[in-house]
Design a protein around this nucleic acid. Structure first.
Lengths: 233, 233
DNA sequence: AATCGGACTGGAATGTCGTTCCAATGTTGG
DNA sequence: CCAACATTGGAACGACATTCCAGTCCGATT
């Protein structure tokens, strides 16, 4: 088996390696892996196999796993925010579009919620929070908000959007289909109704509302709430 | 600290083990470890050493690391929400109190932001999201909100609070003192001002506001924004 | 009092992960 | 053609969460 290694190189390249390894191809494969098997599915070993290479080759293009996760998140978020750029509506509609873009992106890539929250807590200079902040803020001026409140208003909107998105990932993960979703909400509602009435009176009281609510609708209602607050000043 | 030398391992209990191992003691030690060395500092090895035991003993009381993190988060959040229970003010002040309680808890335990976001995305039946939701919702009724909007309004407030909290963890982590904080904001603001004017016009425009803003103040302003939106309906 | 069984302990062992290292390979310019 | 260099991929390493198991302790039963 020692001498056998002479010709070990094999025709590996003939397999699929028509394109060279690149940061883009690696990130793309990472996203596919994340979509297919969740956060724990993305390992350098699995990635190596899918790209028909070894871990060392990946490390030539990417510093570490954190950077890989960051790149994957960035690609997906950028795609989600790029779409509604064409349709020019009222500033209110524009902001709703940004919010809904993120909302559906997270529904399609459940791992995204955790990652975006993570990037957010890693600092405001990371590209993902920047993209979102800019995407929202761009339309805040047109909303009639005085300039010295821009920062505050855009921050409030971003925080609400990301907070909601994080929560709704759990729905998306468990509920693949509409039927599953109904079951999931039923389970949540039932669990809430069995809480201790002394400790959780409010949650028990709204258990029925939780069962019947529409995520997307409620999400937009929340945005309208903030927009109404802005207008009320 | 005082080693008993190479005495037989039998007199182990004489060392420091006056109290028995319990879920509470383990969680407490986990929080101390997290506070001292951050999220990566909490390992079963370090925890074993601090508790003068082995990993196996810990696993008798705690199922896995996730459950340990959950318990640690729960304890800290519960403590943060318990304080303002006595002082009864206007519903608006009560909600502000809940929000500020979480805000300062995260400032004292920077690892909390990530954990709370994580728990949130793991489902609405986990105890941490429940506590927060209840803590807020309890005062929503007194706010004059019609009952069929309770769920929506409480959700919107919770999402904003948790989203803001996640962001402000990065400030807290980097900025131990007031001086550090000013430096941090300067760095962020400077980084924002060097962005591409075509891609990030808004962010560049508010860079100066970012430098001078007060986290806590802005956080409360955001809450007032939502409350104003509620009143405006 | 002796013993028996389950609660509890802790050290060793297992397998997986991120990461590093390095010999081998392709590629490029002189 | 050959030296410098960029790139590759497989093996090896250390740290980690988790499991296993041989013990130890303690309260209930007889």
């Amino acid at each position: 088996m020692c001498q056998d290694g002479h010709m070990v190189a094999r025709t590996r390249r003939a397999q699929r390696r028509t394109e060279a390894l690149s940061r883009e191809r690696i990130t793309e494969a990472a996203v596919e892996l994340l979509d297919a098997s969740g956060e724990s599915g993305l390992t350098f070993r699995a990635l190596s196999e899918r790209l028909a290479t070894g871990p060392g080759a990946i490390y030539w293009h990417v510093a570490n796993k954190g950077e890989l996760l960051e790149a994957a998140t960035d690609v997906v978020v950028a795609a989600a925010l790029a779409e509604p750029a064409e349709a020019a509506g009222s500033p209110r509609d524009e902001i709703r579009a940004v919010a809904l873009g993120l909302f559906t992106a997270i529904a399609e890539h459940p791992w995204l919620a955790t990652q975006v929250s993570l990037q957010l807590s890693h600092g405001p200079t990371k590209s993902v929070p920047l993209r979102i902040f800019e995407g929202i803020g761009r339309h805040v001026g047109a909303l009639g908000v005085p300039e010295d409140s821009w920062f505050t208003v855009a921050s409030a909107l971003m925080h609400y959007i990301l907070g909601s998105a994080a929560q709704n990932a759990s729905n998306a993960r468990v509920a693949g289909s509409v039927v599953d979703r109904a079951e999931f909400l039923d389970a949540v509602s039932a669990a809430w109704e069995e809480l201790d009435p002394d400790d959780y009176p409010f949650t028990r009281a709204v258990a029925r509302q939780a069962r019947e609510h529409d995520d997307r609708q409620q999400f937009l209602t929340g945005i309208d709430l903030i927009l109404a607050g802005i207008r009320a000043r």
